[in-house]
Design a binder for these strands. Structure first.
Lengths: 237, 237
DNA sequence: CGCAGTACGTGCGCTAACATACAGACAAGC
DNA sequence: GCTTGTCTGTATGTTAGCGCACGTACTGCG
């Protein structure tokens, strides 16, 4: 499970910090391995740790009517889990669910707040990240309302592909159904269609992206919009 | 159009500030009257002014596919328009549309930033407000995905009722259709149903809430959830 | 008074997604 | 080798909301 990738997939938020600030922050972080389907935060409960994914990625899910849920955010090594702390609120608004098992850096809430206090570059970067997250959330809301399951699935696969740093990752249909807020059968149909178009392949939960640009054509324009917002605010790294 | 209400409907965010901070901020604000359907911000363009609604209320709409849109936020005298400035970003993520004509306080961006700099209570309050806005956005996303038009309409009417400070307000079916992301006919059907249940009445765009608790029963639980979040984070005023 | 504009109501065919149920294929463990 | 659980595919009937088109009623204006 835990190996050293050829190019260490460090966290891109941290990578933008000045050397001093980053070193100081890193000194207070501990590396952890996140397991698939692990629940890091429960919606409405206190935030225990802040995470900077490096080789893992995490879904933010808002619960609805008890049983169902809907993904409102996806965090990879470009982001941070626990961003609401910069707003002075230590209560998680969403459930945080590990989608891609892998490495992350973890820091306790008090230490994180202390680092935040001392590093202005960290504050600035995190504020911009929060802005981008908000924009993406709204985009996702509109996407969920208007676009077909197949296009939404394609978009999700692209977003995940970006964050997984691999062409293959593990996600079952039923998991996708939960995330996208549809029935499992709806995912099966859409996934079959994408498979018939030779855009992806999968077998028992292991999904492989075969044709990235084809997937981009199959996805709604939300994917593109979202990337543009990211580039504009957080710049290219 | 502009009259002095018996109880001056001041802005509740400002009301929580210490006397000194509030006075200083108010000194830099100018009162304005917002017209129905006026567009205050365009999505993706620079923020010209910050608004504190007093007697008016404003919709945040995220555009999708050019022609359509979806409401992702509703701002009344409990809030502020232009909140992203506290994140250091002066680009509006959403279109801001005046839903309820009425009074507001306006302040230029440079002056606002200056006030923000000098008043820590203002910073704290606005950060908490942003947290609540984010939570509501996610709630709305899930609501739009799962709940029926009638329940969503009821929820919207309640939210608007809270912000309009009157039982009657002006909104046409076609406007509601745009906001809720459905066809006009869908609104007509849902509104007819609510009318048959004697919960509301309307005539050529003037909607009156007849039975508030009945409406609450007709709405999805999102309305309640949202109020609870508000109370928990921003407290009762 | 007639006309144009606005707002609301209705009808009909269509489809994406729903609920439910079942069956085959593979994997892991005893 | 058999069982059990997981993952995926398929089938049937239902429904909410869509697109489009048309009808009606009220309002304001020249």
């Amino acid at each position: 499970m835990s190996f050293i990738p050829a190019v260490p997939a460090a966290n891109r938020l941290l990578a933008t910090l000045p050397e001093m600030d980053r070193q100081h922050l890193l000194a207070n972080c501990e590396p952890v391995d996140l397991r698939f389907a692990e629940v890091l935060y429960l919606a409405g409960s206190q935030i225990p740790h802040v995470y900077f994914p490096t080789g893992s990625f995490i879904s933010l899910v808002t619960p609805v009517d008890g049983d169902t849920g809907l993904e409102v955010g996806l965090i990879g090594n470009e982001g941070i889990l626990g961003i609401t702390l910069i707003l002075g609120v230590d209560i998680a608004p969403f459930q945080a669910l590990v989608q891609g098992a892998g490495s992350a850096l973890r820091i306790s809430v008090p230490l994180f707040l202390q680092e935040l206090e001392r590093s202005r570059p960290l504050q600035l970067e995190l504020k911009r990240y929060l802005y981008v997250s908000m924009s993406q959330m709204a985009q996702t809301a509109a996407c969920n309302r208007f676009h077909l399951v197949e296009a939404r699935l394609a978009r999700w696969l692209l977003m995940t592909h970006d964050r997984a740093h691999a062409d293959t990752f593990h996600v079952t249909h039923i998991f996708l159904a939960y995330i996208l807020g549809v029935r499992r059968v709806g995912i099966t149909k859409a996934a079959l269609s994408l498979q018939e178009q030779k855009l992806i392949s999968y077998r028992r939960g292991d999904i492989t992206v075969l044709d990235r640009s084809g997937l981009e054509a199959a996805a709604c324009e939300c994917y593109r919009t979202e990337r543009e917002t990211y580039e504009r605010i957080l710049g290219s790294v």
